[in-house]
Design a binder for these strands. Structure first.
Lengths: 173, 173
DNA sequence: GGTGAAAGAGGAAAGCG
DNA sequence: CGCTTTCCTCTTTCACC
């Protein structure tokens, strides 16, 4: 299920274009890739079925939603056993401030990306939702000054044409 | 430009629905929110113009693209001056392995999210693109066991209805 | 600002090279 | 497997409330 999928140059070209603009129509896509629109439709449907394309996500500006401060929380959960970490992850995911959660190697088991209104809001979040919990042994908070998205995700060995690095960089707080 | 935007309940409802399925049609959106499709069109256009909605992104499965291993690299860039960190960030963003870059507070200045084929590929990346650089003082590598996306991003104080936590969690490597 | 209908465009499925 | 055509649904606009 998680194995690599055979992709020909047309598939790769489609993925490059769609990662630049996921709302591109099949007509525009066809024009850029050099095949017929219905072929693009077929290819994209196959990429969806094979699991390469998982879905479409809306990119929002957290600052415009009153969450102008973002941070990464490194969290140690002790003891690090399934009975504790399962509920921990689900509780964190349900927080309105949470954006994503990583389970990592290293001394800090989890990394939580959060978006809050301001430093006071962050302090409240850390104190009320993390350090007050018995299973949370340690929390280290780092503010995010700025974030950049990178170029399109492609298989190893695929030459990425220049200028395909996504323009978006979050403005500094 | 980065200030908070006034959003009424209809806007919030639209944002919730679109974060669940960014490809929802205006008809479906209208049916769920309880207004006319043309009204949804207006609202979404305003959300785009005001910068709340930045764009649409394709969600891909890195494993299906032959990048079954993901990691976070904590990088110290010394000396931490604009002449060095600007080119550093741009070079990292141009790497085909890079997914996103964070400039952070704390002893490690940058966090780089990468997707690679395997451990050997990761070793090559760290040695050839990071530690071999003079401005890179230190690199700490942590593997990502699993990653979860969280619920919709909404303004503080907005009650998030249950079941809106995104289902997607990356399968463990 | 929201609605409803009309015009225009895009997407999905058929049959053919 | 890809192209062309057709049909149908959706998007988008505009006058009206």
């Amino acid at each position: 299920m998680a194995e690599s999928v055979a992709l020909d140059p047309v598939d790769l070209h489609i993925l490059r274009v769609l990662q630049n603009d996921a709302r591109s129509t099949y007509r525009e896509l066809a024009a850029q890739v050099g095949v017929a629109p219905s072929t693009c439709l077929d290819r994209v449907a196959r990429l969806r079925r094979s699991g390469v394309i998982l879905g479409h996500r809306l990119r929002l500006d957290p600052a415009k939603l009153g969450r102008g401060l973002q941070a990464l929380l490194s969290v140690q959960v002790r003891p690090h056993r399934r009975e504790l970490v399962g509920p921990f992850v689900e509780r964190v995911r349900a927080l309105p401030e949470a954006r994503s959660v990583f389970h990592l190697t290293g001394p800090d088991d989890y990394l939580v990306h959060v978006a809050v209104a301001d430093a006071a809001d962050l302090q409240r979040l850390v104190l009320d939702e993390f350090t007050s919990r018995r299973e949370v042994a340690r929390v280290e908070t780092r503010l995010i000054f700025q974030q950049w998205e990178c170029g399109p995700l492609l298989p190893p060995g695929t030459p990425a044409p220049p200028g395909t690095t996504a323009p978006g960089g979050t403005a500094p707080a």
